[in-house]
Design a protein around this nucleic acid. Structure first.
Length: 302
DNA sequence: ATCCAGGAACTGT
DNA sequence: ACAGTTCATGGA
């Protein structure tokens, strides 16, 4: 991580193949998003580390992201954690040169690699948030998924209001571990999803499931198996979480409807491609399946 | 109305 | 292992 701690602000130095504006397009894809906000080109996000809430304004500069704390004065240790979070969130560490090399030779990715050059996979560093968001999104349209997430966040998350706008933190697993299925049902989650989410909250609150434990596995197959052993986590959710939270570059959520739609559009097909066709197409993406998927998702927001 | 949505568990073969 | 069914509700 390359950064400077200025005390009242911090600065993260981003590589050439990094485009903040492209990342903002993805971050701005829903007007129901409650976990960050975009105001006149800068990004606002609430974070919390060790009981310390941090209000961050993130602006893009020439070769850096500049982060201000207009409402709180985080400690030096917390400033470092903020830097690490943002570095993770935007996948800044990743060297994309071989991805673009591959994309250049792939007829589908070639135009996307050029158009969205510098776009990073916007992650979900918090494993609990990633799992819950994936489960919420199972088999419902994205608009409704955002509605459900908003309800969950606004019922069980912490918030902070600044200049008339309220900013939210995703609820902790400890908090969700204490609520009942009936309580979640009231927010119009299905009984199954209530059970999945509360069970996972308990697993994580108890320390049985952590990012560290998953990353200690021998290989990605073992990580996927461990995730899929959790009730409510199938292949799609496992790959989604590996892609967005565990940062596995080869994760490929094969059953993803967004991926199917993007491919249909990019290939000019009448119908969505079959799993067999996608498997065939994806052989080109070896090592970069997650980035290929993300660039295709991005193509849905032009 | 009708189809489908950033699927997964369950059931029967 | 594999295919069909159920869950369950809103968006377009």
């Amino acid at each position: 991580m390359k950064w400077t701690d200025h005390g009242s602000s911090i600065e993260l130095y981003t590589p050439l193949a990094f485009n903040f504006a492209q990342c903002l397009v993805f971050l701005d894809r829903s007007n129901q998003e409650t976990l960050h906000r975009i105001n006149a080109g800068y990004l606002v996000k609430l974070l919390k580390f060790d009981e310390e809430v941090v209000f961050c304004q993130i602006a893009s500069k020439q070769n850096s992201m500049h982060v201000n704390f207009p409402l709180t004065s985080p400690s030096a240790a917390t400033r470092k954690k903020v830097a690490a979070y943002l570095w993770q969130w935007f996948d800044v560490e990743r060297d994309l040169s071989s991805f673009y090399e591959m994309a250049h030779k792939d007829s589908i990715l070639q135009p996307l690699g050029q158009k969205y050059y510098g776009l990073r996979i916007i992650g979900i560093p918090d494993l609990f948030e990633a799992l819950v968001w994936a489960i919420i999104g199972q088999q419902i349209n994205l608009t409704f998924a955002y509605t459900l997430k908003k309800r969950l966040v606004e019922h069980f998350g912490e918030s902070l209001t600044f200049e008339g706008e309220t900013y939210w933190l995703f609820p902790s697993c400890e908090k969700i571990a204490t609520i009942s299925v009936a309580t979640l049902r009231d927010l119009q989650f299905t009984v199954r999803k209530c059970e999945y989410i509360i069970d996972i909250a308990k697993l994580m609150a108890g320390g049985a499931l952590t990012t560290e434990k998953l990353l200690q596995k021998e290989n990605d197959q073992d990580i996927k198996k461990a995730l899929m052993s959790i009730r409510g986590v199938g292949a799609w959710t496992a790959d989604y979480v590996m892609m967005k939270s565990l940062r596995c570059p080869t994760a490929l959520p094969m059953a993803d409807v967004g991926l199917h739609n993007a491919l249909k559009i990019q290939l000019g097909l009448e119908h969505k491609p079959t799993i067999a066709e996608i498997t065939q197409i994806a052989t080109q993406w070896k090592g970069w399946q997650a980035y290929a998927t993300f660039y295709l998702w991005r193509s849905l927001y032009d």
